[in-house]
Design a protein around this nucleic acid. Structure first.
Length: 341
DNA sequence: CCTGAGCA
DNA sequence: TGCTCAGGG
């Protein structure tokens, strides 16, 4: 889920071309999970190869990434390592929710309720170690860099952006802002259209830029106070206070100044874990500075062997993707040549 | 999610 | 050129 602070975050819509020439450190798990959950048939069945292995994540990853590369957007994927100990409660809860959803999915399918079945299938989706490994294999064949984070991927991506090795973090969640990323990019999609709540109409989706500086300036708060707001509404590491959303959290934080003061109030006594420990996860995350970000030419044979031969993707569709990757690679080569001129 | 065909 | 829609694996 991530920390829910959308209501107090200033968001700027941009065109996908705005990201051209910019390096985006993409939260890989966030993205793959999105693909796995969304790329499905009407009854909720994911795409599968002839051996019954799920391929939805590979489809999304290949087509979207080759589009980004063609447009000169430079993605580097960042994978989760070990979660902080405090996340175990959240992870357990998610497991339970998935198990329940899987039961509901089967029931709905037996009753012939396709739409219901799909909803529960999406909720039951979970990324296996194998899927993560396959995704890394595919990215390497495509010549797209990926980084193994020691801890949370969002934390590592944020550090890379702070280090100015990336321009922004790409994720749907807001957590990277708490980890100190100067810029967050949401909705990095090619053909984004989303159902309008209620109506049968579809609205086009644009990438969104969120700047940490602007977020801080707008509310006259510092980064520790943003973390405090997160802790009040709830993070992956604590439950948050019932009845407090981002607006009330902001007000409280501005009144009390910091999480320590808040923890000593009546509200603060309701925390399920020590809020200072949660704050420490965001301020001193488990990240590394020895990483390498290099794009390479796509390896056509490896891509085809992996996607077409092993997982039954259509060769003609994969060919157009490979052409896009090549186009991006030559664009990069051209630009690095111009730097010398 | 993304592709590609069909149709205005 | 832009839109919808079925199907992808």
């Amino acid at each position: 889920m991530g920390v829910q602070i959308k209501d107090i975050v200033p968001i700027k819509e941009v065109d996908l071309d705005y990201l051209q020439g910019k390096i985006t450190a993409i939260d890989a798990m966030n993205t793959l999970y999105q693909f796995l959950s969304i790329i499905r048939q009407r009854d909720g069945t994911p795409l599968k190869d002839s051996q019954g292995r799920v391929t939805s994540h590979l489809s999304g990853l290949f087509y979207r990434t080759s589009n980004l590369i063609e447009r000169g957007i430079e993605p580097v994927f960042v994978f989760d390592g070990e979660p902080p100990e405090l996340k175990s409660g959240t992870l357990e809860t998610r497991r339970e929710i998935r198990a329940e959803a899987e039961k509901s999915r089967k029931k709905a399918l037996e009753e012939g309720k396709e739409k219901e079945a799909r909803k529960y299938a999406q909720r039951a989706a979970s990324l296996s170690e194998e899927m993560v490994g396959q995704s890394k294999t595919l990215l390497s064949a495509m010549g797209v860099p990926w980084i193994q984070a020691p801890g949370e991927g969002e934390a590592q991506a944020a550090r890379m952006t702070q280090n100015e090795d990336a321009w922004s973090v790409g994720s749907q969640d807001f957590d990277s802002l708490l980890y100190g990323s100067p810029i967050l990019t949401r909705n990095i999609t090619i053909t984004g259209k989303r159902k309008l709540p209620g109506k049968d109409k579809y609205k086009e989706i644009f990438p969104e830029i969120i700047e940490l500086k602007k977020l801080m300036a707008e509310h006259e708060i510092d980064r520790r106070q943003i973390i405090a707001i997160g802790i009040l509404v709830g993070t992956d590491y604590n439950e948050g206070i019932k009845g407090i959303g981002p607006k009330r959290a902001l007000k409280l934080v501005k009144e009390k100044g910091n999480i320590k003061e808040i923890s000593e109030t009546e509200t603060g006594e309701k925390f399920d874990v020590d809020p200072l420990e949660v704050e420490r996860i965001f301020l001193e995350p488990n990240v590394k500075d020895d990483y390498e970000i290099e794009w390479e030419d796509p390896d056509t044979d490896k891509i085809k062997e992996f996607l077409c031969e092993e997982h039954d993707f259509s060769e003609s569709r994969i060919n157009t993707g490979i052409e896009r990757l090549k186009k991006g690679a030559s664009k990069r080569a051209q630009e690095s040549l111009e730097k010398w001129a």
